[in-house]
Structures are given as structure tokens and as C-alpha cells.
Design a protein around this nucleic acid. Structure first.
Length: 432
RNA sequence: GGAAGGGUGUCCGAGCGGUUUAAGGAAACGGUCUUGAAAACCGUCGUGCCGGCAACGGUACCGUGGGUUCGAAUCCCACCCCUUCCGCCA
């Protein structure tokens, strides 16, 4: 949620930016509830003080009957106030939760994704002296992807991946783990981008793939049940990204400042119901109910949050360049960055088979919006306590990355040249 | 899944419904002593919210949510988690 103090002090700005993000919240009504709520809270606390006082008088020995009578009256008075408070508080909380994070100044204002801006394009679309195929045309005939049998067992949008494509996935995982664990590479990227943050490498992490409702809601990442799988029996949800189980990891904790930034490289299977996407990307493995993903997650001080975000974007670009995949960087507009986001970047990889750029990466900067609900704070060296800033970003969505490799590195006879950097993890193999 | 025992502050650990304003210890920080350090001694030492420029005051929080009571860490109910034993299992 957004800082109520900030909303009190900047109601017009909050109303305007809320609108820019495509959200409808009556800020003035919110502030009226806020005021009423505080008034009632003051009254309640005064009555409670009276109650505590009254009870204290009865500490020693036999309670006087008139004190008990007084206590009963106080109890009734308190109950009446608390009832009124509960109503106001609920209305207040509902409005407050509806307020999105404020976009940073450089986020383009726009109400649909058409107003996203292409920040830059890197590499030319791969040239072929033959008609490039779509990834499933390459993979299915060779038995690398079997969707028919998967449909028999689990339904549509599932697949069996087999053979060299599986080796490729784990080669990518190894490559990314090695790259993000290399302090020199991080340092180089920090310097190149003029960032004022450490070169601390990323720690690989395998998170749970499920989480409970309470932390999920607090993460501001729980989408409607149309999008996310729910395990009713156990009050658990299947995560739609490792970022969901990573950002919630320090829920309700105060981290010593020396520990920051905490940089994780998470690997997790992600699950999405993809309701309402019937027919869209039906072929191949572009849009699946289940896919594996490498996700970066960073907890930092407020001062370094933006630089951490820029580092994550730089890493995404570096990884794509290492694989030799042409891509473009998209600065998402106010309506497209998402409710908890202050800034959001997408990366679209060039897919020759589709003759189009398609989204393969996202980088999200939440400032303290997500941390406020998750109650993740840091204790500074001077003893003060502040909310951390959170960042998440895709390292590689493995399915889509393999699509990009297959389509960009395909040969006329339907094989795939393995990018140089992956070969050490493919047993030296240069083609599959 | 069955049985038993537990969840108290950064950690350990007390806590017969009303001297709990949560004992005591450890760690940490500040100080005295010391050439310096250790030891010893003295002091400080949870989080949120409301009010206040501030010192401070009020209030809530002892796994979570409800209930009983004039009064709940303490009693009752439900749920979550942890430990041990048994069963099952990669």
C-alpha cells in the first residue's frame, strides 16, 4: 500500500497519478475516512485508558462493587465505539489498498500498452537465406516437444519437453548461475551504468512453489483466481513466479542494514491458469500453464532501490547479448507497469519464426509499496528503522528463452546452433 | 495420518486472572576502571499506531483469529506452525 502520510500531504498528486495508472480511487473520500478513523481511534484509546485505570484500582484485594459497576459501563461504552470504528476502518482500508504505487517521473503517461515506449533496439533481426520456422515446427517433428500426450494427461497448454531441449534448459540455468555469481561481471555492469551500488553477487535460491493466502495478499502480487491456481484443501496457491515466494521471504522482519542489498537468483516452476487467452499462442510452448523461470529478487535500502532496478535491467540486457538474441527494451507506460510498480521495463526478444518481437523479460521496481504491506524493514546503523525497497526482474523465462534460441539460431535443415556461452554446459555440443 | 509436548522481546528463559509497568540471563551499544584489551561494575536496550516542534504521553501487540471477565501472556474455542515418537513415503 501507499504511505497514508504521503496521501494526506499530497492528495491532488495521488489522485492524478492514480488516474494515470488507470485506477479509480476517490482520494477525498479516503481522507474523510482517515480523519474519522483517527477521531474514533483517539476516543477509543481514551476509554481504554479509563478502563486500565479502573482495573488498576482493583489490584489489591477485594474489588469494590461500585468499581465493577463502573467497569461495566466503560465496557459498554468501548464496545459501542469499537463497533463504529470497525465500520470506518474497513471502508478506509479498502480505499487505501486500492491506491496504486506512484509512477516515477520518467514513466511515460499512457492508458494502454500501445503507449509504452521503445527505449532502444539492440541487434538487427536475424537474417536467413531460407524461410525461418516457428519453434514448434523445429521441435515437434524431432520429438523435443510433445504436447499431444501432455494434453491427454494434463490438458491443453502443457508439454513434455524431451532430449536436447531439456539439456539446453539446464545449460541456460548453469550459465546464468555462473554469470550472476561472478562478482567481476556484476562490478563491470555496475560501473558501465554509472551505478552507485555494490558488486555483491547473486545467491542462487530454490523457493517453495506454493504459498499461503495471507503473505500472497500482502505481496500485492496475488491476481484473481482466474489467473492463479488455488489449492483449496490447504489454503495454498501455486506461485505464478518465483518472485511471489521470494518477495514474501522476509515477511514481518527487520533486516540489519549490513545485510543489504540481498540479491537472489531464484529458480522455480511457475503456474498460470491463462484463462481468457483461448486461441492466443495456442501452438508451441510460448504460453503454458507451467513453465520454469529464473527470477532475480533484490531487497535494498531506499537510497539504492532505483540503482538496483537499473542493474537488473542491465543484467537482462547482458544475458540476452551473451546469447546473441536481438531484442528491444520497452519502457512501460503508467497503465501497464502494474499496481505496486513505480517503474517497469519489459524486454522483447526477436522471434524470426513469428517475425515479431515478443515479451521475454520484465523488471519491476516497487519502491517501498510492496514492503509496507509485507512489513519488511531494515534497521540502520543509527538505530532508525525504514521500509526496504523491493525489485524483481526476469533473468530468463526458460521456455521463451529456448524459443528465442531455437528460432534465431536455426539452420536450413531444422537444427539449432548452440550459442557459444552455453556450449560448456552442453558437453561442448555446438548444435542440436 | 495417530500420540504427546510446545510457540513469550535480537537470542535463551520465568510467568497461581489483578504489585507484569513482561522477572532473570546472554548478546549488542554507551560509560567507569585500564597503557590497550579482557574481566568486573553502572547505564541503555522491542514494534506499530494516535497526539506533540520536542522531551514525552496514550494505546495495541506474548503464534493467528474469536470468546469469557470489571480486568487476559495467564481461562475457553477454532486454526497455523514447531519438536519428539509411531505409521507412510522421494
Amino acid at each position: 500500500m501507499l504511505d497514508i502520510q504521503f496521501i494526506r500531504e499530497n492528495p491532488e498528486e495521488v489522485a492524478q497519478k492514480t488516474k494515470q495508472k488507470g485506477y479509480e480511487v476517490n482520494v477525498h473520500e479516503l481522507l474523510r475516512f482517515d480523519e474519522e478513523r483517527r477521531e474514533l481511534l483517539g476516543a477509543i484509546e481514551a476509554v481504554r485508558a479509563k478502563r486500565n485505570d479502573n482495573a488498576a484500582k482493583m489490584k489489591n484485594g477485594k474489588p469494590a462493587p461500585e468499581l465493577i459497576e463502573q467497569g461495566k459501563a466503560i465496557k459498554a461504552e468501548l464496545a459501542e465505539l469499537e463497533e463504529r470504528f470497525a465500520v470506518v476502518d474497513e471502508a478506509f482500508a479498502e480505499l487505501l489498498m486500492a491506491v496504486p504505487n506512484m509512477p516515477l517521473a520518467d514513466v511515460p503517461v499512457g492508458l494502454t500498452e500501445d503507449e509504452n515506449q521503445i527505449a532502444k533496439t539492440v541487434g538487427d533481426p536475424t537474417a536467413f537465406d531460407f524461410e525461418p520456422k516457428q519453434h514448434w515446427e523445429l521441435a515437434e517433428p524431432r520429438g523435443l516437444i510433445d504436447k499431444e500426450r501432455a494434453a491427454k494427461i494434463a490438458g491443453s497448454r502443457f508439454a513434455y519437453l524431451k532430449g536436447d531441449i531439456v539439456r539446453l534448459q539446464f545449460a541456460i540455468v548453469q550459465f546464468v548461475m555462473q554469470t550472476l555469481g561472478d562478482e567481476q561481471i556484476i562490478e563491470k555492469l555496475v560501473k558501465e551504468n554509472g551505478l552507485n551500488i555494490t558488486a555483491k553477487p547473486f545467491t542462487p535460491i530454490l523457493p517453495p512453489a506454493m504459498l499461503r493466502t495471507e503473505p500472497y495478499v500482502a505481496s500485492a502480487r496475488l491476481n484473481a483466481e482466474e489467473v492463479t491456481y488455488k489449492i483449496e484443501q490447504d489454503d495454498l496457491w501455486l506461485n505464478a513466479s518465483a518472485e511471489h515466494t521470494l518477495c514474501t521471504m522476509y515477511w514481518n522482519e527487520i533486516l540489519p542494514e549490513e545485510q543489504l542489498p540481498i540479491r537472489y537468483l531464484g529458480y522455480s516452476t511457475s503456474f498460470r491458469r491463462e484463462a481468457g487467452t483461448y486461441g492466443k499462442d495456442a501452438e508451441g510452448i510460448f504460453r503454458m500453464h507451467q513453465f520454469d523461470k529464473l527470477e532475480m529478487e533484490v531487497f535494498s535500502t531506499p537510497e539504492t532501490g532505483l540503482d538496483e532496478h537499473l542493474l537488473l535491467v542491465a543484467i537482462q540486457e547482458y544475458l540476452l547479448r551473451q546469447l546473441g538474441i536481438p531484442y528491444r527494451v520497452v519502457q512501460k507506460c503508467t497503465a501497464d507497469i502494474g499496481k505496486p510498480n513505480a517503474r517497469g521495463i519489459d524486454m522483447d526478444a526477436w522471434l524470426p519464426g513469428q517475425n515479431a518481437y515478443r515479451e521475454t523479460h520484465t523488471a519491476d521496481y516497487m519502491t517501498d509499496y510492496q514492503a509496507r504491506d509485507l512489513k519488511i524493514r531494515t534497521r540502520r546503523k543509527d538505530g532508525s528503522i525504514v521500509l526496504v525497497h523491493t525489485n524483481d526482474a526476469t533473468a530468463f523465462a526458460l521456455g521463451r528463452t529456448m524459443i528465442a534460441i531455437m528460432e534465431n539460431c536455426q539452420t536450413a535443415d531444422g537444427h539449432v546452433i548452440i550459442p557459444e556461452v552455453l556450449r560448456p554446459f552442453m558437453g561442448g555440443k555446438s548444435e542440436i
